[in-house]
């Protein structure tokens, strides 16, 4: 434990230093570049400030983020709920399993045109595409997590005659939560990809649509600034996710650490 504490600052330094170093290298290597497709990082940062911080923040950045958050939230809730029903009720499992595995084999991006013909191209189409794509990783992780719950735990719950509700909330949900969270993390990545893909069709509003448009009209600095923004948002989303996970799974992470220490 002591050793780990001593290593901490070094690790932090590495975590912050490496990206900073890479950025510095990019800045220096691209300074004075005349290649249209690889403009200087200084130009990209300039465009970043001009485009995303003021001009298009409300009209594009917030629109994309709202779709992402809504779609992801719907997916997460639905996946855990349907996952519980599927894992706990054998008839449902038999009925739903083949359908789920059929649907999850389809690349989510390929579903966007189908959603357009079903529901037009308003924000609800984008949210629905994101939600459907993000559903499967969490759903599958939930079902697997529930199936792997220790029999002993269930037996104890039986002995104590816990109600169905208590069994779900106090026993099954916590026991499956480490798996559910790894599913949620995969879902987050999928939701992110589909957020961008869903903006390729329909009204050109959103970060993905703006970046695509910049690429197609050779505004290369704008395109790079869009890519940079997507990277930053991806990083921030993951960071937030990790914070929540650490909070919720504190008991689990702690018990793992103890197990390793002993």
């Amino acid at each position: 434990m002591d050793k780990l504490m001593n290593k901490r600052p070094v690790l932090w330094l590495l975590g912050i230093g490496t990206p900073a170093l890479l950025l510095a290298a990019w800045w220096l290597a691209s300074a004075g570049s005349t290649d249209t497709f690889f403009p200087p990082l200084a130009d990209i940062v300039d465009r970043f400030r001009a485009l995303w911080l003021f001009d298009h923040f409300g009209s594009d950045v917030l629109v994309s983020l709202r779709n992402l958050v809504l779609g992801y939230a719907i997916a997460a809730l639905a996946a855990v709920a349907v996952g519980f029903v599927t894992a706990l009720a054998a008839p449902v499992r038999w009925a739903v399993d083949p359908l789920i595995h059929f649907l999850r084999g389809i690349p989510p991006v390929a579903l966007v045109p189908i959603f357009i013909s079903l529901m037009g191209f308003g924000p609800e189409m984008r949210v629905a595409s994101i939600a459907l794509a993000a559903f499967f990783p969490t759903f599958i992780a939930t079902v697997d997590g529930l199936r792997a719950v220790d029999r002993g735990l269930l037996d104890v719950a039986q002995v104590y005659r816990l109600s169905r509700r208590d069994r779900v909330v106090a026993v099954l949900l916590p026991a499956a939560s480490p798996q559910i969270f790894s599913g949620l993390q995969v879902s987050l990545q999928t939701a992110f990809v589909v957020m961008i893909a869903s903006e390729m069709l329909g009204p050109s509003r959103g970060i993905g649509a703006m970046t695509l448009l910049a690429q197609q009209s050779f505004m290369i600095s704008d395109m790079w600034s869009g890519i940079l923004l997507l990277g930053v948002i991806g990083f921030a989303a993951n960071f937030l996710f990790d914070l929540v996970r650490r909070k919720v799974l504190a008991w689990y992470i702690g018990s793992r650490r103890l197990a390793r220490a002993s």
Binding site: P113, I116, S117, G120, F121, M200, L201, G202, P203, S204, A209
Partner: peptide
């Protein structure tokens, strides 16, 4: 209000009034 659509979606959206 410009909408980006591939040709088959565009034709379908025109006929359905979208």
């Amino acid at each position: 209000n410009w909408m980006v659509l591939d040709p088959s979606s565009a034709l379908q959206s025109l006929n359905s009034g979208r």
